[in-house]
């Protein structure tokens, strides 16, 4: 199997699936790369849970405004049409189902769409959940962006999560460096494979009975 997509290419691939008019929250970490890959000219509204819709890219260093940051506490800018609001409204937007898409990182995703991404459960770990649980159950579509494998070579797609859960049955799609997986009633369905890999290789890497939905996707895309 050739190497999978690098992070920026994966971010660009995810950006292709975000339609104009969508309201999107990009989680801390790798998902923030997607912002730079959204097609110019399309109106896609970014939500940041610390209280803003219409978030723009990072400013020039001389224009960094300490009052204007994203959920990762990085400096950002405001686009025309932006709005500010307090935290209860911001999380009401999530919980109330007003966000179209959120993209989160993951430690593990189970076949039923359970997500673990906040706590390793290690005794010396300091747990920190932030807005992950609210995003996981609130957005209409919860997508995960992650490497398929951990640094130790284990699969992040699993039958059952062993790490503490962030949310149950909340993930609908997983974009990895090796392939795109939909969470289907029968388990993970592979819709797209990157870098010339095969479904059997993915089955071997994950140890899961993956459904091959790549031909369906190709027909759908043609």
């Amino acid at each position: 199997m050739t190497a999978g997509l690098e992070r920026r290419a994966l971010a660009a691939r995810i950006a292709e699936d975000i339609a104009e008019g969508s309201i999107v929250n990009l989680g801390i970490g790798a998902p923030t790369l997607i912002a730079d890959q959204l097609p110019a000219g399309l109106e896609i509204i970014l939500h940041t849970e610390n209280g803003m819709l219409g978030m723009g890219p990072a400013p020039e260093p001389s224009l960094v405004d300490p009052d204007l940051i994203n959920a990762g506490k990085q400096p950002v800018t405001e686009l025309a049409g932006a709005a500010y609001f307090h935290h209860a409204d911001s999380f009401g937007m999530m919980r109330g189902g007003h966000l179209d898409i959120c993209v989160l990182g993951a430690f593990q995703v189970s076949q039923r769409g359970d997500l673990a991404n906040w706590h390793t459960g290690a005794p010396d770990a300091i747990p920190a959940v932030g807005g992950a649980m609210d995003l996981a159950i609130g957005a209409k579509n919860v997508w995960v962006m992650t490497d398929l494998l951990t640094r130790d070579g284990g699969s992040k797609l699993v039958d059952e999560c062993s790490y503490p859960l962030t949310g149950k049955r909340c993930v609908s799609r997983v974009y990895t460096d090796r392939a795109v997986f939909d969470v289907a009633p029968t388990g993970f369905a592979v819709t797209e494979i990157f870098g010339g890999g095969t479904i059997d290789e993915l089955r071997a890497l994950t140890g899961l009975d993956l459904v091959d939905a790549t031909s369906v996707t190709q027909e759908g895309r043609s």
């Binding site: 849970e49 209860a88 999380f91 919980r95 959940v129 649980m133 609210d134 609130g138």
Partner: peptide
């Protein structure tokens, strides 16, 4: 969880006795 924190604070200011939220179901929370 951040949304529960915000809503618990909001509820206190608004005189709400308690509320049901989907955030955290099935987790350690």
């Amino acid at each position: 969880p951040q949304g529960n924190l915000a809503e618990r604070i909001r509820a206190a200011g608004a005189g709400i006795g308690a509320f049901y939220t989907p955030t955290g179901v099935g987790t350690l929370i």
